[in-house]
Amino acid sequence: MRKWLGGAVLVLVLAGCSGQGEEPAAGGSQAPLSTVENQAAPPPAKGVTSLPASTPTEISIPKIGARSSLVPLGLNPDQTIQVPPVDQPMQAGWYGKAPTPGEVGPAIILGHVDGNKKPGIFFRLKEMAVGDEVSVSRQDGTTALFKVTHVEQIAKKEFPTDKVYGDTQGAELRLITCGGTFDHAAHSYKDNIIVYATLVPPMS
């Protein structure tokens, strides 16, 4: 598994996903304002479609009517992955220590299901299905288009670390939010909704 993963293997859930009107759980700090340094991905294998590194700026998911700029996210002191501000539930963020969307490897984009008694940017993420498209605009002016290959809901305590963060042969994308039953004691949902997608080769 790549060095960029670092301590993220310790906690791989959106600890800051709060419910309607609830306070965020520990680990849900605001994303930093500066861009997180990205570790260079290895060169793609022969015949693999990919794009050079470029900071993602916006995500668009037509199927669920989701569109948001992207703020960079890193790790909290306790090694949980940072999440976008809960008081801005429509804001999505990208994990800046992973490959950028379009590079070989799994790019990671996180978003809240809700917050401040309002739906979040990924409120309808569970509706995604195989074949749906996700586009990510990049700082270099290109757009990385991805097609969904798999959607799963899984308990946070069973988060599939290797499947989500492990090396991939091609350019892939992971969209992650909270779901399932809300645990009022923990101020967090019990499950994660994870969408897996692969890069669509650009038209020649």
Rank of each mutant, 00 (worst) to 15 (best):
I81V: 13
K3E: 13
A45S: 08
G111M: 03
L199V: 12
Y196T: 07
V195T: 14
E152Y: 06
S137D: 11
H112I: 08
Q30W: 12
G6V: 02
S34A: 12
V148P: 07
N192R: 04
Y189H: 15
T80S: 14
I193R: 05
L5A: 01
K163V: 01
A41L: 02
R67I: 06
A40Q: 09
G131E: 06
N76R: 13
I176T: 09
P43I: 05
P201Y: 14
I81L: 13
P99E: 00
V164T: 07
L199C: 12
F146E: 01
G65W: 01
T35A: 11
W94R: 00
T35W: 09
T143M: 05
V136C: 00
P160Q: 04
K63W: 02
E58S: 01
T143Q: 11
Y95H: 03
G28H: 05
R124N: 15
G27K: 00
A25M: 03
P85Q: 10
R67M: 09
R2F: 05
V48D: 06
S135I: 00
A197R: 13
Y196E: 05
V200E: 10
Q153E: 15
T181D: 15
A8R: 05
A129D: 14
S135E: 05
A98G: 06
Q30D: 14
C17G: 14
V71M: 10
P43Q: 03
T100Y: 11
I109N: 01
V13Y: 07
H112A: 11
P52H: 13
P24S: 07
R174F: 09
P52G: 10
T57A: 01
E23L: 12
V48W: 06
G120H: 09
G65M: 04
Y189P: 12
P62R: 02
S188V: 12
V151Q: 12
D87R: 09
D162Q: 02
F123G: 03
P72N: 12
G141S: 11
H112W: 10
K117Y: 15
L33P: 00
G131Q: 06
S204P: 15
W4S: 11
Y196I: 05
Q30M: 07
G141A: 10
L175S: 10
A15P: 00
G28A: 02
R174P: 00
G111A: 10
P62C: 02
G74W: 09
V86R: 09
G180F: 13
L14K: 06
K117M: 14
P160H: 06
K63R: 14
S135D: 00
V48Q: 13
A186H: 13
G47H: 10
G7E: 08
V13M: 03
M128K: 07
